[in-house]
Design a binder for these strands. Structure first.
Lengths: 357, 357
DNA sequence: CTTGCAGGATAAACCGATTTATCGTGAGAT
DNA sequence: ATCTCACGATAAATCGGTTTATCCTGCAAG
């Protein structure tokens, strides 16, 4: 077959010529501006499909101010939580007629700031940021400096420049404290094996406050580290070696999914039984947790709700419907009671209160 | 503080003026063209940093032909496999000085084609596609029609238009057959619970061929479905209800990660013990599989190798270093022998052969 | 002394859309 | 019959870089 490859794609002028109107008119039809006579509009539409015309978003973006693109920056895409979050964001964005571009900061604040600069260069309408550490990090500062529209998600508390959305870590962790205390546990290990972010701190405090309120004599140990996962096993072993017999904690509350897996693995290796020897509750549910034996009691985060809320508030700002001062949204978590914590009294699955303000 | 907000960002002309040269010269310096006198180049660089100048990628892209952007389209981001794949791609792209934009087809071929059209509109230099079904799907056809540079990944076999990269599903599945047959199992259930893609079919055939070659009397049942996960439980129960006693398979080979989880869960629910009552081997390893009890024997995919290979071959095409006909790359998998299949003889972890051509 | 040529710099055209300023037309008002 | 005004349509300016065609300068060759 002969090469008719190199026919370059039709421009708006080609369409204009074919329809017998000016380029400006075509542009109006394409963008749905109403001041065009219907017969002209019809001829334009015919020409568009006859020529297979597609608007060039780059040329379009050069002059036009507002782009219909939302940027998202997340710490990584290897954990199911962010994967689902991004999926939810993308779905919501699309439903509102926006495109999404995603990038990962790989837990680096410098990269985070770079990516945001890049998104600003591409003139995104707004940006969803899951900060590496907190709302006071480099990424958030860059957003502010660049005067961008944004919403901060997950590893955040209230902020004075941007809306924030996260799981209600504090309330959910308090519910875990309720649960463990009611089961009679008076010595708990709090274990955090990931980036010590705002979310992790909030979970920690939520638990600690409630537990101490219920029983001031409660013993709460902490084992926190953001070292690479495999390097953390020795620390766990050391801890248990140093706390044997009556000093061994009655329960572990692991503050992240990776943390849960790590602790479970080490508990197994020590030959302890869950929940007979030690109870385990994890923050952040995973699909394997209901299948493993024993199944793991965990706090499930409302990922979809977070995604929808985040995109909703962002778009409200972008489209100018919302102009008030920043709001912090706390989406309620669900605690899935399974086997790993035992159960002396039949506690119904608890829902944490909805947050607000 | 007074509002000095609205000072718009510096353009290349501002830099030119500040440096006392023309815009064309600035452009050359920025792109590293050599035909600029060093003292001029130096003044330009000084002006750039003095004015905080950043090149506008949109304006730049309008005239310039080649963009330094790679697009990636994956079926979803909720499974760890694609998450890690994307991370690997992004890292490799960045190392080569490219940016990446990711989008998810959500297992829809129509969406897949749309996304590719969109990436073409944005003039990406090349595209990494993990097709929803196979290299003959709508996405691949669109790539061909648009005459784009691309590499097809994961759910593919050889193609006559694009390089393809995937795990060596066939060889790895044959190794699983070796393994199960050597353990004495003569009745195996093959279970596939996800989109029945090319990869799943290849795994199935790889197993079947080797197993029948080793023992022509082997009984191999299949349970395949791409229905929503939770709707598939009844089918599993029905199967086991219809195949009890001596008809019960001695082993299950689950062809995807979700499949493994689903089967394990149902086996548990039936009160069967793994591996005493039934052996289980899964394709695609997950981090929880080494921690659960029993730990799961699984085939680990070389995600990083796949990502690097994919981006490497794509860039070779994009940069014109490679122009030969398409190559199929098969990256070797690793079989992680754990508890779920039992072990009468001590089989060392097997490595499948490297594929090629 | 003239011509040729290479190295560097630049003004102007260009990319493909959007936006602005202008213009023609016909209906309604005076 | 003349003047407005609203409505559509359009030519031209614009966005911010890249590319092209041209120009200048100085030096070597004829």
């Amino acid at each position: 077959m002969p090469a008719d490859d190199k026919q370059k794609r039709a421009t708006i002028h080609d369409v204009a010529k074919a329809a017998g109107v000016s380029a400006a008119t075509v542009s109006k039809v394409l963008r749905g501006v109403k001041t065009v006579r219907e017969d002209n509009a019809e001829r334009v539409r015919a020409a568009v499909s006859a020529l297979d015309y597609r608007m060039d978003p780059i040329a379009s973006g050069l002059r036009g101010e507002q782009r219909r693109i939302i940027g998202a920056v997340v710490p990584d895409l290897e954990s199911a939580f962010f994967g689902r979050l991004v999926t939810g964001l993308e779905r919501a964005a699309e439903a509102a007629g926006y495109h999404m571009i995603v990038a990962t900061s790989r837990e680096s604040e410098a990269r985070e700031a770079d990516l945001i600069q890049g998104m600003n260069d591409w003139r995104v309408a707004g940006c969803v940021l899951v900060p590496v550490r907190s709302e006071r990090g480099l990424g958030a500062r860059t957003l502010r400096d660049l005067d961008m529209q944004a919403v901060l998600v997950d590893r955040v508390s209230a902020d004075d420049a941007f809306d924030t959305v996260s799981a209600d870590n504090h309330t959910a962790s308090a519910a875990v404290a309720d649960f463990l205390v009611r089961l009679g546990h008076r010595h708990v290990l709090l274990h955090g094996a990931t980036q010590i972010s705002k979310a992790i701190r909030t979970r920690l405090e939520g638990f600690r406050e409630r537990a101490l309120a219920l029983d001031p004599g409660m013993r709460i140990d902490e084992l926190l580290s953001d070292a690479p996962l495999e390097d953390q096993r020795p620390a766990i072993r050391d801890y248990f070696a140093a706390n044997q017999g009556t000093d061994r904690p009655a329960a572990v509350f692991s503050l992240s999914q990776q943390s849960t897996l790590l602790v479970l693995s080490e508990i197994r290796r020590m030959g302890l039984d869950v929940p007979e020897d030690i109870a385990l509750v994890g923050f952040d549910d995973a699909d394997w947790m209901q299948t493993t034996w024993p199944s793991i009691t965990a706090v499930a985060q409302p990922v979809t709700a977070i995604a929808e809320r985040a995109l909703g508030t962002l778009l409200a700002r972008v489209e100018g419907e919302s102009t008030g001062f920043p709001v912090q949204y706390l989406e309620p978590c669900t605690m899935l009671v399974r086997q790993s914590a035992g159960q002396t009294e039949k506690a119904p699955p608890r829902r944490s209160r909805n947050g607000g303000q």
